[in-house]
């Protein structure tokens, strides 16, 4: 898994690439929590992610809750079908706010 961070108008955009699984979900969590502590909003670009597992979902969820607590926006963008399938399994497809496309 690789990630790339950029900032657009005070929103931190983090793009992941590769599988977010048990091997790297801890690293993904650290990256997301760091992003949630910066700027006024976070957008997670998942267009380069094919596979996400429960530990990766947990990392997203934790960052989401953290950002919301701080009154920041938190959106997911570029979610492909396989990743959306996992969100649906977790019934999180109605919890996460999705952006239509990555800004």
């Amino acid at each position: 898994m690789k990630h790339h961070i950029r900032e657009v108008d005070d929103t931190v955009i983090v793009a992941f690439e590769g599988d977010i699984d048990l091997e790297c979900s801890g690293e993904a969590r650290d990256v997301l929590m760091d992003c949630a502590s910066r700027g006024t909003g976070v957008q997670v670009d998942l267009s380069g992610v094919f596979m996400i597992d429960s530990s990766g979902v947990a990392s997203l969820l934790e960052a989401f809750q953290n950002a919301r607590k701080k009154g920041k926006t938190f959106t997911l963008a570029g979610v492909g079908e396989p990743v959306m399938r996992v969100f649906k399994l977790a019934r999180l497809d109605t919890v996460f706010p999705f952006a239509d496309s990555a800004s």
Partner: peptide, 18 residues
């Protein structure tokens, strides 16, 4: 319990769903 939004513990649910 899926209404509980605590991270973690999702795996077994996935398996049973699939």
């Amino acid at each position: 319990e899926l209404d509980d939004l605590r991270p973690g513990g999702l795996g077994t649910h996935f398996i049973r769903e699939i």
